[in-house]
Design a protein around this nucleic acid. Sequence first.
RNA 1: GGGGAUAUACCAGAGCGGCCAAAUGGGGCAGACUGUAAAUCUGCUGGUGAAUGCCUACGGUGGUUCGAAUCCAUCUGUCCCCA
Length: 429
Amino acid sequence: MNFIEELRWRGMLQDMIPGLEDQLAKEMTVAYIGFDPTAPSLHIGNLAAIMLLKHFQLCGHKPIALVGGATGMIGDPSGKAAEREFLSEDTLRANQIGIQKQLEKFLEFHSGANSAEVVNNYDWFKEFSFLGFLREAGKFLTVNYMMSKDSVKKRLETGISFTEFSYQLLQGYDFYHLYKNKNVRLQMGGSDQWGNITTGTEIIRRKEGHDEDSTERSAFALTTPLVTKADGTKFGKSESGNVWLDADNTSPYAFYQFWLNAADADVPRLIRVFTLYTKEQIEALEKEHAEAPHLRILQKAIAEEVTTRVHGADVCALVIEASTLLFSKDAVELIAGASDALLAQLPIHEVSGELLSECKNLTDLISVGTDNLIFPSKGEARKAIQNNAISINKVKVTDPNAALNFDRIRGKYVLVGNGKQKNYILSFK
RNA sequence: GGGGAUAUACCAGAGCGGCCAAAUGGGGCAGACUGUAAAUCUGCUGGUGAAUGCCUACGGUGGUUCGAAUCCAUCUGUCCCCA
């Protein structure tokens, strides 16, 4: 199956410049996607773009991931209502390193001609003088053209700085640079990037168009739809914020739980975008799911596949075991018999001696006693207990003043449940 | 440069001297029903406390008043109109 067909049936194709299919059929093509180093880790909002590169490589083409060391210093106005604060150069550099490492998990970097590559646009922008840039890039676009971009138009009312206005020139120049130096023919991205990407194709066309056959395009754009949820809320955020790919920011357990909790209505789209299951496999899974929806076969399939890719098969297996363990009625016995490797994946929170000594009752323990992990204030903790939301070792507790004399599993663990979905294991010295 | 409007909790937005920790909607959290789903219904949603209460909060500062989110002065931010 070719790349475009693959994207089509997966619902990952929003828009592309005509002629791209011919280009892809003609030869091994090089394409890139840019990632902003605004955080030290990528999050699942970036995952759709990564999958785009993944499919691209699987179809025999060469993917390049561009880390925006330079563009990150400017700030992309797309989808932003207001001007952004700058990140310090140190932060950006640290972020770039983190992101680069993560990308390496998804793409094949040693597969011969179509090996993936990571590039950083800071490498070619750092030497660029301001005048040089104006002559090299700025001359090829009119302000009229740049103003007509959606990302700019939306900001005309509230204001946009010259810096952010220039962003599209930088991104456009990236494309041109890679076109010249890496033989890149295609830039991909989320649908919000269409404007920025076509700026690049425009620069290439104007700078290169004359000496080639001008009717034949040589630079292409392709975008993927933004992943949305059926209830209209933003995809990719959990209650505690972004879901990161980095285990330090989002534990593998939390990561797995995120996917497992996906709504039925969203699952058919998610499984197509975020997993590599084939069309036949997905249809079979959907059929199974429809017959026994309570088993949540689709959710499990996605959660397992994605967690395996991000955190590895071993960790994923443990996390699945941890999940079934915590939600089981016999959690207490299961924890008592759990292996060390399994324990390491459970959401265990160490309760410090000092904090514990300040706790008079259960309310104190699940708020201040746990560094506000479970509840941010005593008031909320008390209300949750009164609302029948809290369980200790799988038994509901309704007295906010309950004493802290619970049975400790293995002599040190206490299992705290908040609601149906959230489980914590407190560890006492 | 001149004139006008506006600033309220996570967001939107009412309140315009005491009944205001502040209506209403959204969002969030929880309970019930379920499948760790969705929809629906119910409760909660500044802190502390068992509670009367106390503390902190309606852009900043200062004032008037027994009493201010509400009135006055001033500063700051934002928006609109004229030049």
